[in-house]
Design a protein around this nucleic acid. Structure first.
Lengths: 348, 348
DNA sequence: CGCATCTTTTGGAACGTTCCAATACTCCTA
DNA sequence: TAGGAGTATTGGAACGTTCCAAAAGATGCG
């Protein structure tokens, strides 16, 4: 009995119809909880189902209905906790929607991205939530976006009209920079991210705005690009520290970069928060737990993910093209890495 | 032209057959790169395909072939970087296998787990990689395991005969404990994890073995259970520190617990590595980046994931029941959190 | 040219569901 | 008791592939 189910033909709707003494149509109605079928037959059918160990075949169903109950989520870097939290938020929002999330990690490769998007379309995904990999082609997104519901998450792509869920990068970076200025810093650098990313441009713009409002100059040499990873942040910071006069404060592209930068600072025998102030962006769980705890801009990845999912569902259900965009609030969370609360390390 | 594809019936194999002046069978052969079809017709068909914007319908295909090209990965906690790395490893190994990974996060809920497993079967998954949620029922796994290829990852379940990829928890924990003993510690506690998890039992067993070999007693009160999360570790450590005499060293269930514990220690105004030595388990990226850097047991989640995927593929392809198990090496990585390298904080 | 052989191509029958229009029951009312 | 209005059930035709057995073309040989 054990392995029987594996070899023999699968149990279908017809088998259980026969066993319950009804037609396949009735079974189908039971499956979709139709109120048309009499309670007594419903039970008889249900009984047959688990007697025979029936497994619903969604492939067949969606073939007939011309639309599957899956949505794809394409994530550029799942090893970044920020995106992991985003993914979890999306999953949570999809939980009772009747849609199942398909996930794929592109690892910032556009080639891989094209592959997975294709695979998702082939599987009949009803829609896609996409965190575009670096250097994603605008034309490709536009083409896609004409064919199925899409929500772009986190990373805007200029020139496309797709729905969008992002955080307020400009305001957030400006706020973080202002905080450093209020603490008395004058020589502030921006570290991490690559210039062709819109997110980078927005955050740098916020940084520059705050600097200019305080009548401070932003020297090009004080903007150091790097991959948005821990290693990237480490390297960039190392480079920055080797310049003849080091800045007293640094706005980092995101938390992982910030943590990499902190490591580089520690390596030089300097103390974060005293010798160099650091502020991050994202407020991942890690930010709370590094030491000194990272002052950062909170964007709540989880709820951004939920938003994106809800938006996608709306777009799928309404059928019509209905573009929305949501800009999540970016809130400064002051911890220890800027020295603001340096004396009392015990506080959260 | 833009939204045309969205409303009208999808382009099928028949459409492109007509357009290329061949039969649907020929198109099908082209699709599967059959050497039977003449090069010239192949090109003609391929041409028609992208002229019409054809999208392969995998649902239909797997209906006919009675098996889909997806495999499911069921992860108990995606927000734990260890499992995120595992998932990425699995994805990497599946990359060119022709199978697409379906991912789901159960968040340690057996109810949710049952739902997602069911959904995966309904989608015709060819196999499953499962990191069982806490309190997963043995009978349920056995039932499942009789119906489709399954690989259990990370968490063993006693009483089931499924294929298995785990790390050498006993040896790893013993090695970590020995390290503490060599450093002169005598009063050592074990923190985190819940008693009904086999992983917990194995690690505690390793801990106990090392203690006994050194003729040290393990008091039950020095084994503190908690959820295997950062918060769990924080709470457990707080409890431990409030006991009248605190241990000088702690073996933690895993890295996230260890990091939580480190936070609790810092909160008490104590210094990790000097006042209390800490060792973790897993060697996630975080372990390297917290400060002081965490001494831990490396298990390489990524390659464990790859193993699991390869094992599953073998099991799917060979059709026959073929149980394997793999126990990954667990290697001690000495960093700073035990004070072993306390003087020179600069080193990695 | 007839026939065998090899290479290409093909129509039809599945696969397991949903949907539609049609039928069969039940009950009520005139 | 015929007819109508519900209420419950049903058969067949799709959906887009793959697979199989068979046919059609090409090539070579005696």
């Amino acid at each position: 009995m054990a392995r029987a189910g594996r070899k023999s033909r699968a149990v279908t709707i017809l088998d259980i119809a026969k066993s319950a003494g009804v037609s396949k149509s009735t079974v189908s109605l039971v499956l979709k909880r139709s109120p048309l079928v009499r309670e007594e037959t419903r039970q008889r059918v249900a009984g047959a189902m688990d007697a025979l160990g029936y497994v619903y075949n969604r492939g067949a169903a969606s073939l007939r209905r011309a639309r599957a109950d899956i949505v794809g989520m394409v994530i550029n870097d799942l090893s970044n906790p920020f995106f992991a939290e985003l993914a979890i938020g999306i999953e949570r929002a999809l939980q009772n929607s009747g849609f199942v999330p398909f996930i794929a990690n592109t690892a910032e490769s556009v080639v891989r991205q094209a592959e997975v998007v294709r695979s998702m379309r082939e599987h009949g995904a009803a829609g896609l939530i996409l965190c575009p990999a670096l250097d994603t082609d605008v034309a490709e997104i536009s083409r896609l976006e004409a064919r199925l519901p899409i929500v772009l998450a986190i990373r805007r792509i200029i020139g496309t009209r797709a729905s969008l869920v992002v955080s307020d990068n400009l305001a957030g970076a400006a706020r973080a920079t202002e905080h450093l200025i209020e603490l008395g810093h004058r020589d502030i650098a921006f570290v991490g991210g690559v210039g062709r990313m819109v997110v980078f441009q927005d955050r740098v713009a916020g940084f520059a705005r705050a600097m200019e409002q305080a009548r401070l100059v932003v020297e090009p040499a004080r903007i150091i690009e790097s991959m948005p990873t821990k290693d990237g942040g480490f390297d960039a910071m190392k480079r920055l520290l080797s310049s003849e006069r080091r800045p007293t404060a640094v706005v980092c592209f995101n938390d992982v970069v910030a943590i990499g930068a902190m490591l580089a600072i520690a390596r030089q025998g300097l103390t974060v928060g005293r010798d160099v102030a650091i502020v991050g962006f994202d407020d991942t769980a890690e930010a709370r737990h590094v030491s000194p705890a990272l002052t950062t801009v909170s964007v709540d990845a989880g709820s951004l993910g939920e938003r994106a999912a809800q938006m996608l569902l709306r777009q799928i259900n309404e059928g019509e093209r209905r573009l929305e965009s949501y800009v999540g609030e970016a809130r400064l969370v002051v911890r220890e890495s800027c020295g603001a609360t340096f004396k009392r390390r015990i506080a959260s």
